[in-house]
């Protein structure tokens, strides 16, 4: 009882005495400002890491939902008449890719085009490459970190792995004949090594293709993009619609 009253009095007396304005010299103000700025900058950089690792995936997941609707998926049966591949616009849903090595439920909608704006929505089809099942080199690029990281496990791809691609024209099965084989640095190439997506990889551009190939590209290292990584394979079967 006594104490409480005491405290009340002290509080009151503090309220009544005029508070002197806090005096700080200029150097202290500047040091404080710089310190606050640096703390803020650190927080922003950390937030950016959160954005690249996790934030980008939210947008990608939403985009994949829309693209699945575009293909008429998720309704049990394909209700819509699929759009012929040659009539697709850049950014449209192109087809589906399945890679059992990455898990039985690993399934992504491929987007027509490989600009940044396409790839942030999922794996992209190189516009200059042929369609699945055709003679030439059907080529796909996808992120390994951020944006849903479709190719996160890319180095785990082994020679002999199956890649399944489904489009308006049918379902196609490819078997890899060159892959990282579990080596984190396997099949590492430079950013200009576009030969991997040429119609006949490793030959000059005007070499006439005879094989029906698939090529996948992603970034190397996983959390950067100073280099690229690839895997390639050949058509072994499929079913035209």
């Amino acid at each position: 009882m006594h104490r409480k009253a005491d405290r009340g009095r002290r509080k009151a007396s503090r309220r009544n005495t005029p508070q002197p304005a806090p005096k700080r010299n200029v150097a202290a103000l500047i040091a404080g400002g710089v310190g606050e700025f640096m703390l803020t900058a650190g927080a922003v950089v950390l937030l950016f890491v959160v954005y690249t690792l996790w934030g980008t995936g939210i947008q990608t997941a939403n985009a994949q939902d829309d693209l699945r609707d575009q293909l008429g998926l998720d309704s049990g049966v394909v209700e819509k008449e699929p759009i012929p591949l040659d009539q697709l616009e850049v950014g449209d849903a192109y087809g589906i890719i399945r890679i059992p090595r990455f898990g039985d439920d690993w399934e992504w909608v491929i987007i027509q085009g490989t600009e940044d704006s396409d790839l942030k929505n999922g794996p992209g089809h190189y516009l200059t490459s042929v369609d699945p099942g055709e003679v030439g080199n059907f080529s796909i690029a996808a992120h390994r970190s951020g944006h849903g990281e479709p190719f996160a496990q890319f180095p785990e791809l082994q020679v002999g792995d199956i890649i399944e691609v489904e489009t308006a024209t049918g379902t196609y099965l490819y078997e890899l004949d060159s892959a990282p084989n579990g080596d984190p640095d396997g099949n590492k190439i430079g950013i200009r090594d576009s030969w991997v997506v040429d119609p006949v990889p490793g030959e000059t551009k005007d070499t006439e293709a005879t094989e029906r190939r698939i090529t996948l590209t992603t970034c190397w290292p996983r959390w950067g993009s100073s280099h690229r990584m690839y895997a390639t394979g050949i058509l072994i079967g499929g079913e035209e619609v």
């Binding site: 937030l47 690029a141 997506v197 993009s225 690229r228």
Partner: peptide
């Protein structure tokens, strides 16, 4: 934070080229 995620970070990602996956 919302503004950073919606406008600033996507812009920074493009400018710094930190997630390129295509060849050529």
């Amino acid at each position: 934070v919302y503004a950073l995620f919606i406008w600033i970070f996507p812009w920074a990602e493009d400018v710094f080229n930190i997630s390129e996956v295509t060849v050529g």
